[in-house]
Design a protein around this nucleic acid. Structure first.
Length: 489
RNA sequence: CGGGGUGUGGCUCAGCUUGGUAGAGCGCUGCGUUCGGGUCGCAGAGGUCGGAGGUUCAAAUCCUCUCACCCCGACCA
């Protein structure tokens, strides 16, 4: 048990901060309000997410491009709901080159407007559609309360922007990208999510429809981990993005946009980590295996290090990232703690005894504890070590997903009375609750006011209970189906 | 913006009430020792006490002003 990390049971928020600090993932910039520094280990996790998403985007025909960081204020103002939604969090550049600018620039909070402007230039004909663009970049949304990875004034993300000839095609795209987020969360991050549609109140400013993936953190709160929007023709009309169809008529394009951010790093941290520090699913981990050599004398040292090097080479040949920890002046025990709090999934201990038996001691990041309170380790034969380690890591990946899913299921309730509902959200408690809702923003806000729980989404078919009519949990008015409520980050 | 709090070596903080040459733990450097779950010892480096002004023989400490950051509430991927 680590003494440096506040246990989850004592203070969940502090635990989260401690895990990040101890794993050297990021820190509060301090000198720049609301911003963070992503340290190499944290950035490596983001890079793995980027790589996975980027591969999936390209496999579905999208291309990367880049648009300016600064957006003319007038652009933001062109779409009425868009400007209304983003106005409170805009950072504005008013001076440059020592002079006041004639027109202020907004530091992009998102790029629908400036991309709309260029789409209008690029699109003339139905032959130009669909136009499938993605941008990896930073954005700034001025935040009052910030938390590392989860909410900072500047963050990194990707924003996809597409234009289509028909609404049906746009809807298909919106859904395709939502599913890509879901797949990446499940397969890469071992993080189960629920897909759904946002209420009008939670909808992206300027969108016709917003879909979301919601993940449950260990404290039962929901974290919106990706969004995909049907923009309808709203931005098409605002920026005059038109094309000539096969019949020779001019029409506004149908657009989508979709995004996922460095918040995903926070989601992964809160999904899997424990009181000993960071826990990472193997497919996401920057380092898969840490090898700790054990020795007393110089001749032991050279023999052990040589053997460790051979094991590392064999594992690397299988595509694994391996670190041989040959730091001097540090006890093996200290190294164990070090790699564990950094989230390395598997550790191999290699000493003189192992050399003699031609094996290596392995310890999974999450292991059973024996009667002495020590973690259970397994001796692996050096012969065929690569295949065995591969199996172990695959198993750990699956274990983490299963565990997270079990926790989600366990903390999800289907409720029908207001008393049961409020009881779920008393004090700091949360969980997922499927409940009937009358469909009005008024009721949604009243529920939030009373319980701090927010309407996360109306689940897509298969991601929630089957639709059945009922009575709103708050007002008793008719409801078509249950929707998901939870406190949220 | 409303309420509360804090600024002192890299980090966490003590010292302030009752002014008198700036401290601890951790971390860092060097040497030795140890090494199968956070070794131990010795030596050492490192601070205009957030900033400005004032009171005083003397200010981290008292007074005034100022800046910054943090925590709690209203907006948010």
């Amino acid at each position: 048990m680590s003494s440096r990390i506040t246990p989850r049971s004592k203070d969940y928020a502090q635990w989260y901060q401690d895990v990040i600090a101890e794993a050297e993932l990021a820190e509060v910039a301090g000198v720049v309000k609301g911003c963070m520094v992503i340290r190499p280990h944290g950035f490596a996790i983001w890079e793995a997410i980027q790589q996975d998403l980027d591969r999936r985007f390209k496999a579905t025909g999208h291309q990367n491009a880049y648009f300016p960081l600064l957006i003319p204020m007038s652009f933001i103002e062109k779409e009425a709901e868009h400007v209304e939604g983003f106005a409170p969090e805009l950072a504005v550049v008013t001076h440059a080159g020592g002079k006041e600018l004639e027109e202020s620039y907004v530091i992009r909070p998102t790029s629908e407007t400036i991309i709309g402007h260029f789409f209008a230039k690029w699109i003339d004909s139905w032959r130009d559609l669909p136009l499938l663009i993605n941008q990896w970049c930073n954005v700034v949304r001025w935040e009052l309360r910030t938390r590392l990875f989860l909410r900072t004034s500047e963050f990194l993300w990707q924003e996809g922007h597409t234009a289509h000839a028909t609404h049906a095609e746009a809807l298909e795209e919106q859904r395709r990208m939502l599913d890509i987020y879901r797949d990446s969360c499940h397969e890469l991050m071992a993080m189960p999510v629920i897909r759904g549609t946002k209420s009008a109140n939670e909808r992206f400013a300027g969108a016709v429809d917003t879909q979301t993936i919601e993940a449950m953190m260990q404290d039962g709160k929901a974290l919106q981990s990706g969004t995909s929007h049907d923009l309808g023709q709203n931005f098409g009309k605002a920026f005059n993005v038109m094309f000539q169809n096969k019949d020779g008529e001019r029409e506004y394009v149908w657009q989508t946009s979709w995004g996922a951010s460095t918040r995903l790093v926070g989601a992964v941290i809160m999904s899997h980590s424990d009181d000993d520090g960071l826990v990472l699913p193997p497919r996401l981990a920057p380092i898969h295996v840490a090898i700790v050599p054990i020795y007393r004398k110089d001749d032991e040292r050279s023999a052990v290090l040589e053997a460790a090097g051979k094991v590392a080479e064999e594992l690397r040949a299988d595509g694994l990232s391996v670190r041989v920890d040959d730091r001097e002046g540090m006890n093996p025990g200290a190294k164990y703690y070090d790699w564990e709090r950094k989230g390395v999934p598997l550790r191999l201990e290699l000493g003189p005894r192992d050399l003699e038996s031609q094996s290596v001691m392995s310890k999974l990041r999450i292991a059973e504890v024996n009667e002495k309170g020590r973690p259970v380790k397994e001796a692996l034969p050096l012969e065929g070590i690569g295949a065995r380690v591969g199996q172990i890591l695959d198993g750990f990946q699956q274990f983490l997903f299963d565990r997270a899913l079990a926790r989600q299921v366990e903390n999800t309730r289907t409720l029908d009375t207001w008393d049961d509902f409020t009881a779920c959200f008393e004090d700091g408690d949360s969980g997922f609750v499927w409940a009937h809702w009358d469909g009005t923003t008024e009721t949604e806000l009243a529920i939030k006011e009373a319980t701090k729980a927010t309407l996360r989404c109306v689940a897509l078919p298969g991601d929630g209970p089957d639709p059945e009519p009922g009575a709103c949990i708050k007002t008793g008015k008719p409801s078509a189906q249950r929707v998901l409520f939870a406190k949220a980050y």
